[in-house]
Design a protein around this nucleic acid. Structure first.
Lengths: 331, 331
DNA sequence: AACTAATGGGTAATCGATAACCCACAAAGG
DNA sequence: CCTTTGTGGGTTATCGATTACCCATTAGTT
């Protein structure tokens, strides 16, 4: 029971193509009078463009498909969508997000998206990782976000983990800290890259790292299992006490805060704490508020959309985007 | 350069309609041989259904539009989408999320969605609130999620705040707690409804509440502003000490934990702490893990989709969904 | 053997919007 | 006065899939 162009045409006493031209074809030649009349009638009837119909003709819908590795759930991932959405909107496109649940193959999810004939498709990972796209599918994905595509056939946007780690360590050094420890996230790509940056920054200052510890996350399903973070902190404090602890993420920092509080140490006077993520709700509410490196999620989203919608695609490459230091009171 | 039914038809030496029947019309009468041959060729050519084309004919695309009040950003809101998505998937529908940014009118966002001719549209709020849908638009929204529609023209699904509060208080009472305080969230609908439940549960047990405090959130933009939560806790401790503190959400609970730690009190031995939200990342990581009432977000999403896709719509009504107690170690 | 019924499949219209093409008319130029 | 140019707008084909309708063949009935 929706209104179509022909309803408007009939009512206005003109042809369908004239209505189409008046409403959508910006430059279609036609008297201003006709255009106004058609627009008025369209408005009156409550006409809403049928993009499906246009899509058949055009061969695509004004959609950009975003296949994400798991549901867009984390606060950082949301930032990716925010970046994508902003850029898409200004190009008259809508973002169509589909999650790649663990049971499915990438191919089947991509097919699911392709059914809607999107203008372009991106693949986004929830955390920085390596992703293998089957060779046949490389052509249907325009950009990989927050992950490195192994074959190099697709442009990938990732955070510059190494550079980010270097920057925060330099910042700690500039603040006069010398005995710096790193409670890192184990077993993930970001962790190993950051460790490289961490060591490089200390090396260039001629300082030895006080230690790099893996922080095992406390599983959601075993609430009673103690975290390794506090034992790492205790180990650190029992030796040559550090004057700064760099944490793999804000949640680790939260545990570090608790452990330091138990030991009666003040932040940042006795020990500075810094981390990665800038999970605002958490970082800004800790006491003292946490200094942390914000991931370039929004920028990755925005850039991804620009690449997707650009007429002339660049040759595939890996692009590393810089972190952004958020200074609060913990250093 | 995509494959269409006619490409397959040509290759198979049959008509387009036969191909259509073989691939999509499950019950179309046709020899098994033909069907298999067509399917094989479709597979070989990598055919992907063009939903836009089907959509023109059908009058709608297999999409359910979800207009959300701000970007789907909070972890709880994600649960709504998860619920919607699961139910949509099993009905062969995809969820098309569009965010209602503050600058836009609801009408214009709805039009934006309607352009894609979705099968149904829902409106979801990020936190429990009242929403006024302009009368003209009431017809185009099938369900309101996490908000109450004022006119009563649209079915609304909301958490049963009052019941949830009653339940957690009864739980505290059952655990032997008698002097219970409530550090609530001020100025929001959920807060006032929970307060009713809080008082009701205590009243039915013949116990006076130890106090209800509004907790002013520390603004993200003024990191240095002290939270009122800790002063509330201090006030509580200086009087007749409570044996349980119910918190408006997990973040408030986090601040309460910190304040109690400073006062040298143990949880739950000296004071039990409970709250609302079940923000898993936070609640399960606090020490001790936090007992909290989980919001029925996933259930609201699932039920919303069922209502949207049900053939026979019920008359509009307000439906309150129960919270779910997540027992951890803080009580 | 003729007639009905079922089966397999083709023809062509249709959905709504767009676009290539054509036509009628008026103004301008020679 | 005739031709050119431009302007406003209609005709009709098209995109890809679906569907109402029709036709041919074969199997089953009497």
């Amino acid at each position: 029971m929706t209104i179509s162009l022909s309803d408007i045409a009939e009512r206005a006493g003109v042809s369908v193509k004239t209505v189409s031209g008046a409403l959508h074809g910006g430059s279609a030649r036609m008297s201003d009078e006709t255009r106004q009349k058609v627009k008025a009638i369209a408005e009156e009837l409550g006409y809403v463009t049928n993009l499906a119909a246009r899509g058949v003709r055009q061969g695509w819908l004004p959609l950009v498909g975003v296949v994400s590795d798991g549901l867009i759930t984390s606060p950082f991932a949301t930032e990716i969508v925010r970046g994508l959405d902003g850029a898409a909107r200004s190009a008259g496109m809508a973002v169509f997000a589909v999650n790649h649940s663990s049971g499915q193959s990438i191919g089947s999810v991509l097919d699911e998206v392709q059914q809607f004939r999107p203008r372009a498709v991106a693949y986004a990972a929830m955390y920085h990782k390596d992703v293998d796209l089957p060779p046949t599918l490389a052509g249907s994905v325009g950009v990989m976000i927050n992950c490195r595509e192994a074959s190099g056939r697709v442009t990938s946007l990732v955070p510059d983990e190494e550079g980010g780690a270097r920057e925060i360590v330099r910042y700690l050094l500039a603040a006069g800290r010398r005995r710096i420890a790193f409670i890192n996230l184990p077993g993930i790509l970001a962790g190993s890259l950051r460790e490289k940056g961490f060591r490089a920054a200390l090396e260039e200052a001629g300082i030895d790292p006080l230690g790099v510890f893996p922080a095992v996350r406390r599983s959601v399903y075993s609430d009673r299992a103690p975290s390794l973070v506090s034992s790492h902190v205790e180990a650190l404090l029992s030796g040559q006490r550090p004057d700064a602890i760099l944490c793999g993420n804000d949640r680790v920092a939260m545990e570090v805060y608790a452990a330091l509080a138990r030991a009666g140490l003040r932040i940042p006077d006795d020990i500075a704490v810094a981390s990665f993520d800038n999970q605002v709700e958490l970082a800004s509410r800790l006491d003292p508020p946490l200094t942390t490196m914000a991931l370039p999620h929004r920028a990755m989203g925005r850039l991804a959309m620009e690449i997707l919608l650009a007429g002339q695609p660049e040759p595939p490459h890996l692009r590393q985007l810089p972190f952004h230091l958020v200074e609060r009171a913990s250093v």
